[in-house]
Amino acid sequence: MKKTVSVIAFLAAALSVKAQNIAPRDNYLWDIDYYNPSVVMKSNGVYADFYARYDINPIKNADVNPLDISAETYVVRDDHHWQASLAHDGLSYFDAAAFSVAYSHLFNFGTNKQHSFSVGGRVTLGYGRIDFSKLDYGQTGYKIMVRPDLDLGFEYRYKFFHTGFAVKNILSLPLKDDGMTYFRYPRAYIWHMLFDLNVRDKVKFIPYFALGVNQNIFIDAGLGMCFLRVCRFNYSFHGPTISHNFGLGFDIAKRLHIGAGYCFSPTHRTSGVTMRLSVKIAE
């Protein structure tokens, strides 16, 4: 536990990170725990994950930083799962950083504990800074605001089948100035299902699907694969941006995983590459 706390403190103090709070993450592996805090996709241990994403085609017309960085740390102990992350949103006129802490608990029941149920929540403290000079309305200066938010979710598992539901950004508080809302993370409702299929313990197939509703409807559908426990491949489709995401990763050491991903949308003419480094700090 002491190590866990030090990892969180390290991340909170040292990292400038980025994550669109509800935008789909076109990482090379699917991170449903981003949507649903009750989901635990890792085995027992303490982990630190780092992401770097380069937007080849960033927000249209925006003078934005094409490189985003994010970091997360996980502690998984049997039925308990903690997660902490620091995130940064880089919009053209708005900077936001969010520190979040999540906890989920797993309940096993039934014969041979074939059924399990997890519930989880995430508390986020968001900091935002509006740069009025970036807008076209002849204003100057900044305004800084701090807003809390909350995510809740649950997941049910039976053997290889998982399904869950989450509400993200429940409070969805607006950041206002002079009666106008300049930013708010939209509340989203997300349902997911996946199959965690093992073939002789050598190959793993994870077909998955998620359906979400915020101001729009979005879907994530894809297939994750793991070969000999060291090589991972993922393909996912995201709508309505019609983007295709490919990822490939390897365990290059006992506790070190490295991977890369590429996403593109032929219709939206956007693309990006992602690098991921995952370190298992302790068993």
Partner: peptide, 26 residues
């Protein structure tokens, strides 16, 4: 003339191009 703003200053959604601006369910 005088526009060409970043699309995030216009839309609440992640809209990167004209197809994105049309594929809205709002």
């Amino acid at each position: 003339d005088g526009m060409s703003r970043a699309t995030d200053q216009i839309f609440r959604l992640d809209i990167f191009d004209q197809i994105g601006s049309l594929l809205v369910l709002s």
